[in-house]
């Protein structure tokens, strides 16, 4: 994910003519990107700025009107400024979130970290295992490959429904299977960790194919000469895996682990549909939690905005730290 630094325009004697030169040279490139820049500005940057502003107010469902209009006897409408209208409250939302005054930030952060770590770990490990198997000359390889990417082809909310169906407490397949081998059926959604477990299983199922396909691409770009040389030196299969395969996969791994972490951190539909936060909101992750604050019960728009800002900040810090850690190890990325 390297990004070229643009070559600086040649130095020009006077500032004005330099500006003019740049404009003359680049006007068509600018014209071509203009639609996207406008869309980004109107649809992303403006709402983002507004979201940041909202996170410093106390906007909620009950104080969102700026004016209160009353009908007079004559049928006219008289509007007055709403004395209780939402206003600026500084850092109050953030303080409330961090101290646990409103919302369940620490619980949800804990869930998010467990959820992200478990999902990404299994995605990567299973994806790598399957990629290594598929990279061999196996009869029926293309059939296996198609079958194995099926979960990727399923829209996430459909997959969520499928797993919700399987983990249904009354007569879902999981409990029927447990009963048939003589075990007690489990009330999956009655307890925090068993409930989170169902969502993690569902999300692992969805995410493995992407890792597998990406890592398979990485494996195929490792030169066969390296394996031959290692074999000549008497390396065992495991040694070849550790000393040739894993280092060869590093650039791909670095990218897919970063992407996977961000995607899982922000993964909305699975928790939202499979556990629905049960029991009593104890399995919400940050994104689903903030959605419920914004759109369920008494709508707390400002609180949800502050959540959004916190989530994005965490991801940006993570991505920057991750890149730094990689570049310190001499990775060109």
């Amino acid at each position: 994910m390297s990004i070229d630094t643009g070559t600086p325009p040649p130095p020009a004697p006077a500032k004005r003519s330099r500006l003019k030169d740049t404009a003359e040279k680049h006007w068509y490139a600018w014209a071509m990107v203009l639609p996207v820049v406008l869309v980004l500005g109107v649809l992303v940057l403006y709402p983002l700025a507004r979201g940041i502003y909202l996170s410093f107010t106390d906007l909620n469902e009950s104080n969102q009107r700026e004016e209160i209009c009353t009908k007079t006897l004559g049928g006219d409408e008289v509007c007055e400024p709403n004395p209780d209208a939402a206003g600026f409250v500084g850092l109050q939302n953030y303080v409330d979130i961090i101290t646990g005054e409103r919302g369940e930030f620490w619980l949800q952060l804990g869930n998010t970290l467990v959820w992200t770590a478990a999902c990404v770990l299994f995605h990567y490990a299973l994806g790598l295992g399957l990629a290594v198997l598929l990279n061999r000359h196996v009869r029926g390889r293309s059939i296996y490959r198609v079958l194995l990417i099926v979960p990727w082809a399923v829209p996430a909310f459909i997959a969520a429904f499928a797993w919700k169906f399987i983990f249904n407490e009354r007569n879902g397949l999981a409990n029927v299977l447990l009963k048939s081998v003589g075990l007690e059926p489990v009330q999956w959604f009655a307890e925090r960790w068993s409930s989170l477990f169902t969502a993690i299983v569902a999300n692992i199922w969805i995410g493995v194919p992407f890792m597998m396909v990406a890592l398979l691409g990485g494996l195929q770009s490792i030169s066969a000469d390296l394996y031959e040389a290692a074999e000549m030196d008497g390396a065992t299969a495991w040694q070849r895996f550790v000393n040739v395969t894993l280092p060869g996969l590093r650039p791909v791994s670095a990218t897919v682990i970063l992407l996977g972490t961000i995607w899982t951190f922000n993964m909305f539909p699975i928790i939202f549909l499979v556990t629905e936060g049960q029991p009593a909101g104890q399995t919400e992750i940050l994104v689903t939690g903030s959605f419920r604050y914004a759109f369920e019960g008494i709508r707390q728009y400002a609180l949800a905005s502050a959540y959004g800002i916190l989530i994005l900040s965490m991801l940006v810090v993570f991505a920057v730290a991750y890149r730094k850690a990689l570049s310190r190890q001499g990775e060109v990325w």
Binding site: R50, L54, F265, L312, L315
Partner: peptide, 12 residues
């Protein structure tokens, strides 16, 4: 990297 949470309220 944007979470759903960050744009959904302002756009709403």
């Amino acid at each position: 990297m944007f979470p759903v949470a960050i744009l959904i309220v302002p756009i709403y």
